[in-house]
């Protein structure tokens, strides 16, 4: 079986939910970067293509103790149970139209191969996948702003956040051209949502590279979580969590917050469970 080796990249993201303002720049930057279409009515959020979607979370308390936080959600680029690359969506796609990149950790989506069975959408608990229910249409003249780096999708296929894969390709080409085959500089590969964020809430980089900011913030634990052998790469930073970590999806998008209620809303807990679990961060912590 193929394994992620240490030399491979493992691109990931950390989003600071205390800094995120819910402004939506990341959403628009993503749409503009990736030729995402738009239609007349986008107020039904269940058929509105937003590779990056910003959810609004509340602490469910009444006035004036209510609190609100925003949770930007790109594709989580799950590496699946044990981190073996069987993300929920990849493992179900019958046509290999979505695939796990063992060299990058990026979950790809091949629009021309996808035949639109939508099994992957059912499998993804994050609603990160979007189906092209309609033909994409741009008002006359607006096709002029479309970028050649990302092909527009046809009706009937699924699309999702690619971690701006074309930017990875460009950075890799640049690294090659500079004779630097094995190393893409952190600043040379940044996603469009990261660079757009006016609050600097998103940090992107190689989780395998200790020099990269994402690694420094997350401090991913290389050992499986002793409480759940499927979970790998748990953060050793007590303020960092992942969405639905307990399912063993092993996402590579991490979230950061000082607020306990925000961290708690990242997953589901039985009554009283959170208080036992909240201080557990990474296997090595409990190993020593």
């Amino acid at each position: 079986m193929k394994q992620e080796n240490n030399k491979a990249y493992k691109f990931g993201m950390v989003i600071d939910l205390d800094k995120c303002t819910g402004c939506g720049s990341c959403m628009v930057s993503c749409m503009s970067e990736n030729n995402v279409p738009f239609k007349e009515d986008e107020s039904n959020k269940k058929d509105s293509i937003t590779w990056m979607r910003v959810y609004k979370l509340t602490n469910d308390k009444s006035f004036p103790d209510t609190q609100v936080a925003y949770m930007p959600r790109p594709c989580q680029h799950c590496s699946g149970k044990g981190g073996h690359g069987h993300s929920p969506c990849v493992s179900v796609c019958p046509a290999t139209a979505t695939d796990y990149g063992y060299d990058t950790g990026i979950v790809s989506q091949i629009y021309t191969r996808c035949f639109g069975c939508r099994y992957c959408m059912g499998a993804c608990p994050y609603h990160a996948r979007y189906f092209n229910w309609w033909d994409p249409k741009w008002p006359e003249g607006m096709e002029n702003y479309l970028s050649p780096n990302v092909s527009p999708r046809m009706r009937g296929v699924v699309e999702k956040c690619s971690f701006c894969y074309h930017r990875f390709q460009a950075a890799r080409d640049q690294a090659y051209a500079e004779g630097n085959k094995d190393e893409i500089a952190e600043e040379n590969y940044q996603t469009a949502c990261t660079t757009a964020c006016p609050a600097g809430a998103i940090v992107f980089g190689d989780l395998n590279n200790p020099e990269h900011m994402v690694h420094k913030i997350v401090k991913p634990d290389p050992h499986p979580d002793p409480r759940n052998k499927h979970v790998i790469g748990k953060s050793r930073n007590p303020k960092v969590f992942r969405l639905l970590e307990r399912l063993g999806t092993n996402t590579k998008v991490y979230y950061l917050s000082e607020r306990e209620w925000v961290r708690k809303s990242g997953d589901n807990y039985l009554d009283g469970e959170w208080d036992k679990i909240k201080n557990h961060h990474g296997a090595s912590v409990s190993h020593d």
Partner: peptide
């Protein structure tokens, strides 16, 4: 210094 808001980013529309 780097960031932009959604309206500016959508300027081409």
């Amino acid at each position: 210094d780097g960031g932009a808001c959604l309206h500016g980013i959508a300027g081409l529309q």
